[in-house]
Design a protein around this nucleic acid. Sequence first.
DNA 1: TATTGTTATACTCTATAACTATA
DNA 2: TATAGTTATAGAGTATAACAATA
Lengths: 149, 149
Amino acid sequence: MTRPAPFHLPHFLPYLLNQAAEAASQGFQEYYRTRYGMLRTEWRVLFHLGCYGTLSAKEICEKAAIHKTKVSRAVAALENKRLLTRGALAEDRRVEQLDLTAKGQAVFEDLSAAAERFEAELVDGLAPDDLDRLRDNLLHLANLRTGPR
Amino acid sequence: MTRPAPFHLPHFLPYLLNQAAEAASQGFQEYYRTRYGMLRTEWRVLFHLGCYGTLSAKEICEKAAIHKTKVSRAVAALENKRLLTRGALAEDRRVEQLDLTAKGQAVFEDLSAAAERFEAELVDGLAPDDLDRLRDNLLHLANLRTGPR
DNA sequence: TATTGTTATACTCTATAACTATA
DNA sequence: TATAGTTATAGAGTATAACAATA
């Protein structure tokens, strides 16, 4: 009688990645939620503008692999909080140029400093060499599929 | 004038982990959803019973770090699909022993074979040595926090 | 009183289709 | 016709509190 090789759940990459992602996001999530009442897509949009400067919604969609409906709602929420402004683009009036306000910039700076602190905690137990490889490998996995989100 | 070090979003571990986890889960998720109409917590519960044998709901909660309300609903769904049975425990009648039915076992075997195939695709571009380290590092990150879920 | 498990509820997240306006 | 962005809606995921039954 043949028995199938036993499946070892804790080694299954999609499972392991989800557990690690949830654990790693926890602290930062609580920070931006309680401190600024922001949701996940909101901080992501804010960080894209903070890191890359002026962008259109579509450019954020492409860079972050987030669906346009999610970006649209996040932009509206950030606008209500006075963290960004929309500017018209003369050449193409369908496009809106998004920019952080001074307040948005300040929030970005606080959040990115917090992000650095959380990350420092996370990588505390990892060898620097491991960390580089980890990032490379995660990036490789993330890019295996580039679909709508 | 001092400028803060620029924050590099694609290197931020919680972000990178989430992108990788989503991309990696995609294929398998579609498989168990379209083929068996199962949800995320359902396959996780099924796999715990398939991998470890008879368990109580509480034991699944602890092993998988899933909140008891989610496990409760997943167990009810799997029971409706005739994939598991509940048995009373004589010593403590609050506890229910959960076991896969023959059908549940068959589904587990099909899904775990599918999981192996998806994982093989994922790790295709990784050096075997990298993969071991990756698993170790992910496990380390996942265990930094063990909270309710 | 504490524990196992269920139910109710609300909020966040995701996915899709239909829409407006501009091109 | 196609593109940028919005709105509506439903389904999935998460979190919490209140509850029943048993210990």
